[in-house]
Design a protein around this nucleic acid. Structure first.
Lengths: 192, 192
DNA sequence: CTAGTTTCGCTACTTCAAGTATCGATACCG
DNA sequence: CGGTATCGATACTTGAAGTAGCGAAACTAG
């Protein structure tokens, strides 16, 4: 998982397999201290590695958080007999992920940083959003801009609740979100 | 506008009426440089005042931005013959406001800061969200949690688009947002 | 006109975090 | 063994939030 699957192993001392440890330390530190106070120094200390080791692997704190989220989310489970079940399970899945300790804070935090950092925005969009967007386009047969709108609504709503209250959205409200979104994205409901 | 309407003027040198100038400088600086690089030093320089003057009036950068947004938004225009028109105009209004130069960046930026700053979250919730929430509760006759959900969806969606793309949401998508939200909040559509 | 109070601009400072630089030591390849 | 890239450790640079203390200015009360 840590080791690249490249053809020949590159020369030099190989990287130790501590990415998973660093990811875990990142989430727990963010969970305990919040995003802003989860400094790279503290994350490194919690993971038992040097700060320089982290900066050798990720170009910035935002990139670390992005990869950490990618690792925490994993692939989108595309389950459901029909279109409605598929979308419903996707919404509940991302809501549950964002509810996990540290994940929501880290997500909202890195998203915030990206607002005034175009480079991080590119990383976030390409590494985190695009894979799920493509999977959804494929599963739903919707054009790109409709799936982007879907993501804006679902993720935006969940993050806004998290940001304004500090708590993840309750199940009842996630269900309301599903019920609001489903008709709009029902087969043949959209324009074109 | 700047001067307090308090009973007797307090002793000492009165504050100069530069709040409006500071607000304008804040928005233009955020618009030019982005939220993170719009430092209080730079905002003060753009407004032609000393940084200490700003910190005499607002306890933190976040509080300044919050008041600046409050000033930029103004009161929620509650127009519309019926419930649907009222909600539609409210969504288009906030979308237009967020599209104004600097406003969306400032909003997304201060929101981001609030994620890991409970004190700022309190300021943001009480000074910015609550007035509009109360006005909506009154106008729509909906309970608090439904209006909060409405705000999460609308503002969250608009900010997510702004944060991920750097551009405000296009009119066509705002219209789609309205069409998605309206049926869910139609009279008698909700639980209880 | 003077005394009291508060704001003003200015400069200097403290604190903290992101990110960089450098070093000797270590692990792996050929 | 020689080459190379990583490791931990320490020190450093840079930039921004927020604070402290100054003399000058503006206003009010007497």
């Amino acid at each position: 998982m840590t080791r690249a699957t490249a053809s020949a192993r590159p020369p030099g001392r190989p990287r130790s397999g501590v990415n998973a440890v660093i990811f875990a330390a990142t989430l727990s530190t963010v969970h305990e201290l919040g995003y802003a106070r989860a400094t790279v120094d503290r994350i490194a200390a919690a993971a038992g590695v040097a700060k320089t080791t982290i900066y050798r692997r990720w170009p910035s704190k935002g990139a670390l958080i992005t990869d950490c989220l990618l690792d925490a989310f994993g692939p989108l489970p595309l389950e459901g007999a029909d279109r409605a079940e598929l979308m419903s399970s996707a919404v509940h899945w991302i809501a549950a992920k964002i509810s996990e300790p540290g994940v929501g804070d880290a997500f909202a935090g890195v998203f915030s940083d990206a607002v005034s950092d175009p480079a991080l925005r590119t990383i976030l969009s390409a590494r985190l959003q695009d894979p799920y967007r493509l999977a959804l386009q494929d599963a739903l047969g919707e054009p790109e801009h409709r799936v982007l709108f879907f993501i804006d609504v679902v993720v935006g709503t969940l993050l806004h609740r998290m940001g304004m209250t500090g708590e993840p959205m309750a199940d009842a409200d996630v269900t309301a979100l599903v019920e609001m979104v489903l008709p709009h994205f029902a087969d043949g409901a959209g324009p074109a």
